[in-house]
Structure formats: C-alpha cells, structure tokens
Amino acid sequence: MGYDKAQFDQMGNGKGFIAALDQSGGSTPKALSLYGVEPGDYNGDEEMFKAVHDMRARIILADDFTSEKVIGAILFERTMDDEINGKPVAQLLWEDRGVVPFLKIDKGLEETNNGVQMLKPIMEIDDLLARAVKKGIFGTKERSVIHEANENGIAAVVAQQFELARQVCAAGLVPIIEPEVNIHSDSKAEAEDILFAELQKNLDALPEGEMVMLKLTLPSKAGLYDDLADHDNVLRVVALSGGYSTAEACELLGKNPKMIASFSRALTEGLNVKMSDQEFNDALGQNIDKIYQASIA
C-alpha cells in the first residue's frame, strides 16, 4: 500500500493520542451544549454546523494541539470539506500542526438487533473514499455498538466492520475499526471476550501488509487487547472514552499500556465558548496533557 511514510510511522510509533473531533448531526447539539452554545443560540442546521466548526477550529489552532502530544485527529465529513484560516482542514492539520487526519465515514447505526447496532449502509462509499484521498486524509473511522454478550450479534458486527475495512484499504486508506462495547452493559466483560476472539479471527484472515487500526472500549480486563496490538496487520489500538469521565478514562487507560487514547468528550471537558483564548488554551492544554500522560504511561 502506498501510505505516506511519515504519517504511517507517526501512527504506528508516535507518542501521544488521537483527538476525536467527529461529532455528527445527532451528537452535535449535545457537544455544543457542553461547550455553552445552546439550541436557542443558533437557527437551523447551517448555523449549528457553523458553531461546531468554530469550536473545532479553536481546538485545532490552540497552542497545545500539535503533534508533540496529539498524533492524529478524526474529522466529520463537513469538517474535511471546510477550511480553517483559508486552508483545507486536513491539509492544515498535517502541514501546520503535524497531526495525521482521519475521516469518520459511518452514517449512523441501525436499530438494536441481537444485542448490537450494525452500521447503516454508507451510500456512495467509493466517492467518499476517493474524496478523502484527494483531501489528504490518512485513514477512516467507522463505529458500531455492542450492548450485550450475544455471539451472533458480535460476529455480525465484526464481519461488517472488516468488509468495510477491506474497501477502505483498497482505496489506499487505513481504517479504524470501532466496535464499541457499551460501558453500561451488564455483560460488558463477557462481550469483550467474544469481541476479542472475533477480532483475532478476522485479523488473521487479512492479507499480509493490509493494515488496520482498532478503536475499542477500555476493557474490564486490563490488557485484554495486548495481543491484538502486536498483530502484524494492526498499526495501533486506540481506546474510546465511551462516557467515562476524563479522570476515569485516563485511569483505565493507564492499565492498558498497549492502547493509546482516542477521546472526544474527555478532550473537550470543561471548555466553554465564553472563555478568553488564554483560559481556553489553558483548559484544553490541561486536558491534552492528562490524556497524553495516560497514553504514554
């Protein structure tokens, strides 16, 4: 595969974490509300997306948002198509911040069936992947959710994820496979054991040199995914915060030394639109440092 060598090395070996800046239509109002921008502050989707773009631009341009601690960032499709200071976002991330750009490509989830939520069909996937390559995107991210330890459901989620991953690889991109396990599941630990076995099986079936990344819920059993991190076809295993507070997520991450963070809500915790630039930079810098320290522990 013709991956960018500097980006590939950074994702495989770089010290730091991946920032998840990819809230989409459904989760945007909540993300904005936590930032102090309420639904009454914008009128319609266009103004809402403008507000969230402004928030993301402020994060990306902040003093501490550089490759020293943030090695990658996952973007929403609209963000990829947008600009910051007159420069396409993916280009600015890599050229000005040294941060490897990824694109969230999933289009939401199906209703729960067999204890899981599968990916909805992604229309015009080939066109989306071609645009991503053209924009300088390194990889993609696609999220499903596992709610309970149902063997058939988990096998179906993982099979669907790897089918999509093969399309992404064929386009010259590195997929982040994300079968999230609901942290509130009564059978979380059991679901994770089933997930581990399914991931191992599907990874073993990949051709030599076909690289993927895994984004997984911090496991109940510390070190559960260590063997996956060492797999020849795995570039990196990253952890999602999944609703844990920053402190909880960082503590759990510290017990899984072969995972690095890919947090969204934990990254933006405590940030507010009314903060001065100095206050904003200081608060974000503290979050970045906490997540960085947990990622390199």
Rank of each mutant, 00 (worst) to 15 (best):
K274R: 11
L75T: 02
E192D: 11
F65Q: 12
E110C: 11
A191Q: 04
N272P: 00
K30Q: 14
T217N: 03
F65L: 14
M213L: 11
G98Q: 02
D127S: 13
V234C: 13
S187E: 12
S27T: 14
M211H: 14
L21G: 04
G14W: 05
I74R: 05
L61I: 07
I288L: 05
V37F: 07
A62C: 07
G14F: 02
N13P: 01
S187H: 01
Y3T: 08
K87Y: 04
A261K: 09
M213K: 09
G209T: 07
G254A: 15
R58P: 01
L267W: 02
A294Y: 00
M213S: 15
D82E: 09
D82I: 01
L21Q: 03
E208R: 13
V89K: 02
L129C: 10
G12N: 07
L199D: 13
V181D: 04
L32A: 11
R58M: 06
A247I: 05
V37W: 08
L164P: 04
E38D: 08
N113T: 13
V116N: 10
P179V: 00
D186S: 13
I176T: 05
I291G: 12
S144P: 06
K188W: 03
G12K: 10
M55V: 03
P39R: 15
G285N: 06
D106V: 10
I18C: 15
A19G: 08
E142A: 08
A283Q: 12
G153Y: 04
Q161F: 08
N43M: 00
H53T: 08
S187F: 03
S264H: 03
A294W: 00
P257G: 09
A222V: 02
E77P: 05
S262P: 00
K30H: 09
I71M: 08
L199R: 07
Q91M: 05
K188S: 06
G209E: 06
T140R: 01
V181R: 09
N287G: 05
A51D: 01
L75Y: 00
K290Y: 02
F138L: 04
E151K: 15
K255A: 15
C169T: 10
G36A: 09
L218Q: 14
G254D: 07
K69P: 02
G86M: 05
D9K: 06
N233R: 14
G26L: 08
Q278F: 01
R265E: 00
I177L: 07
G108I: 02
E269P: 09
K274Y: 06
A294T: 04
N256K: 09
L61V: 13
L92K: 11
V52E: 12
K274A: 13
Q7F: 08
I84F: 08
E208Y: 12
P39C: 14
N256S: 07
I154F: 05
T246Q: 10
P39K: 15
F8K: 01
V238Q: 11
Q161M: 13
E269V: 10
D277H: 07
N114C: 01
